[in-house]
């Protein structure tokens, strides 16, 4: 599932590239100006994408608690 990490590039495209197409006030979406709604959408998608990446990343798998001498 190593390809999953490349999903992290999407918010960069969405936020930096999307403004070229959605830099408008109307139509209002969920009561918000279109540009703001677009950015909020990408914030939500970022949270979702990072959750997926977290779940698929073997580094986060529960390992038996290692005892580190302090």
């Amino acid at each position: 599932m190593a390809w999953v990490r490349y999903l992290a590039a999407l918010p960069f495209l969405g936020l930096l590239g999307g403004v070229f197409f959605f830099n408008r006030v109307t139509p209002l979406v969920f009561g918000m100006p279109l540009l703001l709604a677009w950015i909020v959408l990408w914030i939500l998608l970022t949270a979702a994408i990072m959750t997926i990446i977290y779940q698929c990343d073997p580094a986060n798998a529960d390992e038996p608690a290692r005892r580190t001498p302090r």
Partner: peptide
């Protein structure tokens, strides 16, 4: 007005970078 939205956007990108940068 609208230019204020940049404040929302840069944090979002920084958090993505943080996943690989901070550990």
């Amino acid at each position: 007005g609208g230019p204020a939205f940049y404040i929302l956007s840069y944090g979002c990108l920084a958090y993505i970078i943080s996943y690989w940068l901070l550990p």
